[in-house]
């Protein structure tokens, strides 16, 4: 018995080493069953994948988000070399009731939220799984009273701020100008309502500021719709105007009534709790002077 245990440990060590895990608690690799656990913005995902190379890529890419939590969702990942590289970032999404189908040239995936399980067949590349995980996190965040938003998020002096806007509004610029602070993300911001308090979480979903992924969170102190300006100033719009600018930047799923209604309510509730401003900023660090 002692010998068998020793062999099992050796085998686990070899596999763990192969897929580059920093902590073997996060993965179990026995013949026929290889998986790891990720927790992103409080949402835990078990990734089952019998393809050792692909699981290794996933493990390395999401190394900061490996965990040993109980899974909220289980995803079976299957590699398919016949799938081609994506022509662009756009994905085809069908989300009705508890069923989500997502596809692109490089993958096709199906999720059953009622059974908390799904499957993705994909190229041996992390970006395919990443496209699915963004959607799953966006959907599950809604149940926490939050959402996934196109925005940079930064912690300064213990206070969390969101800077959001459409492509080209300056999210990556704001992140690049905030290197002295904790940058949670430069493209997508995860907002949760934890015990009545809005909290920002880092995600592995970054835009153009590579290599900065961390796992961190912080209380939300202010939310800013950003615009390039001739000088730094902020103004407080009425809550309706704020809602009209915020809603289009939330990751949502057109046609899914229940989800859109929840996102709408979550956004309205957040705007009643958190300070909202329009921020016109110069492309240097001085914009922080108007953020209090």
């Amino acid at each position: 018995m002692a010998r068998l245990k020793h062999e099992t440990n050796d085998r686990q060590k070899r596999v763990t080493s192969t897929i580059g895990l920093t902590d073997s608690k996060h993965a179990f690799n026995t013949p026929g069953e290889r998986w790891l656990m990720l927790t992103i913005a409080g949402i835990s995902l078990r990734i089952n994948c019998s393809d050792e190379e692909l699981l290794g890529l996933v493990s390395n890419s999401y190394s900061r988000f490996l965990s040993n939590s109980m899974p909220d969702l289980i995803i079976d990942v299957e590699a398919d070399e016949s799938l081609i590289a994506p022509m662009g970032p756009g994905v085809s999404i069908k989300y009705e009731g508890d069923f989500l189908s997502v596809s692109r040239e490089d993958f096709h995936a199906h999720m059953d939220f009622n059974h908390r399980r799904g499957k993705i067949t994909q190229r041996r590349a992390v970006y395919s799984l990443d496209a699915l995980l963004r959607l799953l996190v966006a959907i599950k965040l809604v149940d926490t009273g939050g959402f996934l938003l196109h925005g940079a998020s930064i912690i300064k002096d213990g206070k969390g701020y969101i800077f959001f806007g459409p492509s080209g509004s300056g999210k990556s610029t704001i992140a690049a100008l905030s290197q002295n602070y904790t940058i949670l993300g430069d493209e997508l911001t995860a907002v949760c309502n934890v015990d009545g308090k809005y909290t920002l979480y880092s995600t592995p979903f970054w835009g153009s500021t590579p290599g900065k992924t961390i796992k961190a969170s912080g209380g939300l102190n202010g939310i800013y719709r950003i615009y390039h300006g001739l000088y730094n100033r902020r103004e407080k719009p009425d809550v309706v105007s704020a809602f009209k600018t915020l809603l289009p930047q939330i990751i949502r799923f057109d046609g899914h009534k229940t989800l859109i209604e929840k996102i709408t309510d979550n956004a309205i509730n957040l705007l009643q709790e958190v300070e909202f401003y329009n921020l016109y900023f110069l492309p240097d660090e001085s914009f922080w002077e108007v953020i209090k």
Partner: peptide
């Protein structure tokens, strides 16, 4: 405010 669910227009 009225939100259309097919295309999320406000």
């Amino acid at each position: 405010m009225i939100l259309t669910l097919k295309d999320t227009c406000l």
